[in-house]
Nucleic acid binder design. Sequence first.
DNA 1: GAAATACTTGAATAATTGTTCATATATCAT
DNA 2: ATGATATATGAACAATTATTCAAGTATTTC
Lengths: 125, 125
Amino acid sequence: MVAELKEKAICDICEVFNPDNQVVEVMKEKELADEVVYDLAELFKTMGDPTRIKILYALKERELCVCDLSELLEMSASAISHQLRVLRNNKLVKYRKEGRSVYYSLDDDHVMCLFGQGLEHVLED
Amino acid sequence: MVAELKEKAICDICEVFNPDNQVVEVMKEKELADEVVYDLAELFKTMGDPTRIKILYALKERELCVCDLSELLEMSASAISHQLRVLRNNKLVKYRKEGRSVYYSLDDDHVMCLFGQGLEHVLED
DNA sequence: GAAATACTTGAATAATTGTTCATATATCAT
DNA sequence: ATGATATATGAACAATTATTCAAGTATTTC
């Protein structure tokens, strides 16, 4: 059962179920296209900051506005807004305006998947 | 069958099979411990550089020595060595000495898992 | 309209980072 | 020992980055 799924898996822990997925193809390539390398680096760099990690984690269940995040992380609204822009530019969060508030939420599931995988690495040994 | 596995999953795409895994527990927490936040950020920051992405990807199947990597990426051995140190410090690669060469390889599966998840995000839309 | 609130943005500054260059260590061949 | 090869490391420099501060826009309330 598990073996069956593993056929298309990149590794034992993280399974990719989408059968005709580009990822599997790209991972088989000998060299990565420069653009892919650059984009990947940008993605990881974006997740490579404690403030942004906290923001993403805070958004894991519910959407929050800038001032919610500002209070939660005990940082200025300006600092939070700057970081949200970085997250937005890298498609890690999306937003929704309501009155004078702007509500942010995670853009897709990949973010928390990466989080989980990262934790696997960090928590081991 | 898949549903059965999904019970313990963090998200639809990336499955965590280890049943008594710390990750699942940590992800349920409201707040992340500062140390975990910092370590996660360090991990992602480490993967957030094109040169290091290329090194990791080059090591995905076979171990390589510094001068192999140096030729492959067309960079000085010094630059490669500096980056390998960063990767070593963050436990993303391990090494093995043989004569005057030092062979580097990926430290564990998580690295390529993160890669796969990262690609999922980068390649979509 | 005026004041208040929520957020964004640009400039400035301090801190961090990637690469280069020079130098150092270790191993091997002669 | 000497010279050559493979790697590591420290200092230096340019480039990038996170936060702060001040000023800007947009929306609501009075």
